[in-house]
Structures are given as structure tokens and as C-alpha cells.
């Protein structure tokens, strides 16, 4: 027979960006261990709607751990207690009957709360817009095999590119630093031969935007890596530091852009 559980949920409610938020406590019953965390949230929402109350607003979309839209802090950990797992892929079998679960939005000044558990992560988009691309207009690519890329380099770029842009790194960091996100993108593009031409410009522009958006600095404590649903490595931050410092040195002698 399938095991089900009853849970107490302590959920952050906030009606709009400017409103003051507070916790509310709800009970959900007969939750299947096979349900995902978001399906449990669906059940809570339906329960609230049936009672004529507004459901808890939360971001979610693909529900297979790749789009990066889901974003909530479960018992103090972004995406919850399971390692390398997004909220949508977190299953209720990892909780136990009678447990109290605290659910909060991602907390960071550059990620203002829009409503309940929804936050605005457009700061990430702006970091990318400032330099997270390789300038190659459609149709300008040379034959894909014209430039061989060592497998190791391609694998490293892929490790970095696996970032889903969910913002858990920022949410987990006590300084709300976006170094892991920015580092992953810079490492991905700066390591590929196609991205080398803009390497310095990219590092300078993206870090300037990142700082300007109000993200904090890195204290190398590694909470971001631990919270990352894609296990993006701190190596990416090291590369960002290196590339940024090199770019600054170059820029000091001869402006890079």
C-alpha cells in the first residue's frame, strides 16, 4: 500500500512587491510520496481555491528540472534538501509524516519578491545582455568542424553551460552573490575558441553589470555550489576571477573595448 503523509506548511505570503509579507500555516493531508514538491503545492493551491482563498503564487514551468523557473527555499535551502535537485524534481518521499516545512521565496535584494514565492530574476537577463554571448550573426558561422575543440575543453564548456539560471546560487549565498551564475557563463564562453575574441570585454562587462545590479561579493564559502541543482563547480568562479583580473590588467595598459 502506498504511504501517504500529513504535513504542516509554513508558507511566506506577500500580496505584491511593495506589501509586507508574513508567514501563514496550512495543513495538507494524504500526500503521496511519489508526488513532486510542486504537485504538493498544487494540492495546497486547490485546497485554498476551494475555500475561496487565493492560492500561493509560485514560479514553475517545465517540471523536469531544466527550465530553471521554479524557485523556492524549502526549510532554509533553495530547492530543498536533496542534492543537485530542483524543486520540481524534489519528491515528497524525502519528507516524513507530521513534518513542518518552511517555504520561503529566494531572498536577495536583486531578486525582489513579486508575490508570495515568486521573485523577479531579470537581473540575470541583464548580466547576459551585457556580454553573455558570442557575437556571430545568423549565417556567419564557418563549417562546424573548421575549428577543432579538444574534447576536454568542450566538456568543460558543457559543465559550465549546464547552468539553468534558476538563481539558487544567489539565494543560498549569505551575500546574495551572483558569482557562480556569472562565472558559469563566462567560463562557458571564454573557454571556447569561438568566444576568445570577446573574452576580456565579456568578463569586464558582465562583472560590472553584476555588481551594478546589487549582487554581493563572493566569500568562497561554497554554499552556491552545494545548492546548485546542476552542481556547477566553484572552478567557474575561479575562472571568472582570473579572467576578470587579467582583463583589468590588459585594460589598464590598453582599453579592451
Amino acid at each position: 500500500m502506498e504511504k501517504t503523509m500529513n504535513l504542516t506548511l509554513k508558507v511566506w505570503r506577500q500580496t505584491s512587491a511593495n506589501a509586507k509579507g508574513h508567514f501563514e500555516t496550512y495543513k495538507v493531508e494524504n500526500i503521496s510520496g511519489d508526488s513532486s514538491f510542486l504537485e504538493m503545492m498544487d494540492i495546497l493551491s486547490e485546497q485554498l481555491v476551494e475555500a475561496g482563498k487565493e492560492p500561493v503564487a509560485f514560479d514553475h514551468d517545465c517540471r523536469e528540472g531544466i527550465c530553471g523557473m521554479c524557485s523556492m527555499t524549502i526549510n532554509g535551502i533553495p530547492h530543498g534538501p536533496e542534492k543537485a535537485t530542483t524543486t520540481c524534481q524534489l519528491h515528497m518521499r524525502h519528507f516524513h509524516d507530521g513534518q513542518t516545512i518552511t517555504i520561503e521565496p529566494f531572498r536577495a535584494k536583486p531578486f525582489p519578491v513579486l508575490k508570495d514565492l515568486m521573485v523577479d530574476r531579470s537581473a540575470f537577463d541583464r548580466i547576459i545582455q551585457s556580454g553573455g554571448f558570442i557575437t556571430a550573426r545568423a549565417g556567419s558561422g564557418v563549417d562546424a568542424n573548421a575549428i577543432p575543440i579538444p574534447k576536454k575543453t568542450a566538456d568543460y564548456a558543457m559543465d559550465a553551460a549546464a547552468c539553468i539560471g534558476c538563481g539558487a546560487c544567489v539565494a543560498a549565498c549569505p551575500n546574495a552573490s551572483a558569482m557562480l551564475f556569472t562565472g558559469a557563463k563566462v567560463s562557458h564562453m571564454n573557454s571556447l575558441p569561438q568566444g576568445k575574441a570577446e573574452k576580456h570585454r565579456r568578463a569586464l562587462a558582465m562583472v560590472t553589470t553584476m555588481d551594478g545590479e546589487g549582487f554581493g561579493g563572493c566569500t568562497n564559502i561554497g554554499e552556491c555550489e552545494a545548492a546548485c541543482p546542476k552542481s556547477i563547480s566553484l572552478d567557474m568562479i575561479a575562472q571568472l576571477n582570473r579572467d576578470y583580473a587579467t582583463a583589468q590588467v590588459k585594460n589598464f595598459f590598453q582599453p579592451v573595448s
Binding site: K10, T102, E104, R107, A108, K109, P174, G216
Partner: peptide, 9 residues
């Protein structure tokens, strides 16, 4: 400044 409020849990 970047993280004005922490988590309850």
C-alpha cells in the same frame, strides 16, 4: 545590502 533579510529557517 545585497541580502537585507535572511531565511526564517
Amino acid at each position: 545590502r545585497a541580502r537585507p533579510s535572511g531565511y526564517d529557517a
